[in-house]
């Protein structure tokens, strides 16, 4: 093996060592969650801690599904999250494109106002926002949870704008020479090149919508309209701390977001191909 080969192997080993150390640090809390979710309530805090539960309480999971209509909750969460994701990605991409390169009157103002909406601490707009939804007659429906997503969002717009700005400027010029209209440039050049960013944004919005606790609790009152995340909080009592059930619930609730993550991740990888085609 030549020198550069040795060097390569050594750096590969180094990378794996770093990855494994960091990976273990990141995974430990999660492993403990899974382990607690399979324990009896009184065993959760026993020490010295036991990583392998005994007895293994698979029934914690079935207990979760016994008490609440989880199928219904799952459906509510899914359709709200999917609609939110679609609406927000579409509206943010449009806005981000407009706010990236084209120069026009009012561009800065709109961008900074949009940004400013992110700076207001949400706690104090809860009540006014709630009143707006009430005047629209949307209380106790799923509308307040996903309709606003069809009207843009500061985070997504900002994120996609930054991404669009990192694409080569020559793309616009080339498109203009080809006689491409603005809409066609957006649809046929910007969007395909932005797959990694769009996938990332979809992932985030899906996750935020899926994990949203405050929205459903405030806007909904009929129990069967609740989402899975809210349903899981129904395992926390005032005095009783059903930690083992809570842990089981937490494990169940993250599975859909992991699936969405794995789906989105494929698109990050396909981004390499797209990246190499351009030029």
């Amino acid at each position: 093996m030549n020198r550069s080969g040795m060097h390569k192997t050594r750096s590969l080993i180094l990378r794996y060592v770093v990855l494994i150390v960091l990976g273990v640090i990141f995974a430990v809390p999660f492993l403990w969650m899974v382990s607690s979710s399979l324990k009896r309530g009184i065993d959760v805090f026993v020490f010295p801690p036991k990583w392998i539960p005994s007895p293994i309480m698979w029934s914690n999971y079935s207990e979760l599904f016994k008490v609440l209509p989880f199928g219904r909750f799952f459906w509510n969460s899914s359709y709200v999250a999917l609609l939110s994701t679609f609406g927000q990605v579409a509206s943010c991409a449009l806005a981000a494109y407009a706010l990236s390169r084209p120069k026009f009157f009012g561009r800065e103002a709109i961008f900074y106002i949009l940004l400013a909406t992110m700076m207001v601490p949400g706690q104090v707009t809860i009540i006014p926002r709630f009143l707006i939804m009430r005047s629209l007659g949307w209380l106790d429906t799923h509308l307040p949870l996903y309709v606003p997503h069809f009207f843009g969002g500061a985070f997504g717009t900002f994120m996609l704008r930054q991404f669009f700005l990192s694409l080569p400027r020559e793309l616009d010029d080339a498109a203009a020479i080809d006689g491409c209209g603005r809409l066609r440039t957006f649809l046929t050049i910007y969007l395909p090149l932005s797959k990694p960013a769009l996938a990332t944004l979809s992932l985030f919005i899906f996750m935020d919508s899926w994990n949203d606790l405050l929205g459903p609790i405030i806007y909904l009152s009929t129990p069967k309209k609740m989402t899975l995340t809210v349903g899981l909080t129904f395992f926390q009592g005032q005095y009783a701390t059903d930690w083992h059930l809570l842990m089981a619930g937490a494990v169940v609730s993250i599975i859909p977001t992991i699936i969405v993550y794995l789906l989105a991740q494929k698109h990050f990888v396909s981004g390499i191909m797209v990246g190499s085609v351009k030029g």
Partner: peptide, 24 residues
């Protein structure tokens, strides 16, 4: 033409944000 892209965002700003922020 470019404002066409911003229609959803502007409606969202007015309908769901401006009122709540001013009220608070």
């Amino acid at each position: 033409g470019i404002y066409g892209y911003l229609v959803p965002t502007i409606i969202g700003l007015i309908l769901f944000n401006a009122g709540a922020i001013v009220a608070s």
